[in-house]
């Protein structure tokens, strides 16, 4: 049941968000150099970035890799399509292809003023858990 839920939320996020970065940590607290490289590459072209932290729940990573057929984190999706991991995204950003890809997928006006949002796909955690649990 929970497997299904995580799978469903990942799928939904990939399908509905224009640019999704599955990463270790959040843009405010990046926990891995490769996630940082992917984030910086996306920022360099002004992409509207939705991030998903894979660390809170190992299931997220398992379900994601099964879905994308890609074994490592980070993973970047544009309009539901896997664009690549840190190396590819960095390479595409440097060659100008990332910008072109975003323009053709999202339209010429895709650039945001650095809009970044974080969504959760794991099981919701009770924010008061630590307060009310003995």
């Amino acid at each position: 049941m929970s497997d299904n839920n995580v799978h469903q939320k990942i799928k939904e996020t990939i399908e509905t968000e224009p640019v999704v970065l599955f990463m270790k940590g959040t843009p405010q607290q990046v926990m891995c150099g490769n996630s940082e490289r992917a984030l910086q590459a996306l920022r360099s072209v002004g992409a509207p970035i939705t991030t998903v932290d894979v660390l809170p729940d190992p299931e997220i990573r398992q379900e994601l890799s099964a879905l994308s057929n890609w074994p490592t984190i980070p993973q970047v999706f544009v309009k539901g399509e896997l664009i690549g991991g840190a190396d590819i995204v960095q390479e595409l950003a440097a060659s100008g292809e990332l910008e072109q890809k975003l323009e053709s997928a999202l339209g010429g006006e895709y650039r945001t003023s650095g809009e970044e949002r974080v969504v959760e796909v794991g099981e919701p955690r009770n924010p008061f858990g630590s307060v009310f649990t003995r």
């Binding site: 890609w70 074994p71 490592t72 896997l82 690549g84 590819i88 390479e91």
Partner: peptide
Amino acid sequence: SLVDQHRLVYDALAEPL
């Protein structure tokens, strides 16, 4: 595509990964 190129490399290194 680059994605498919890298997938071939991941496949080759599946065991140590």
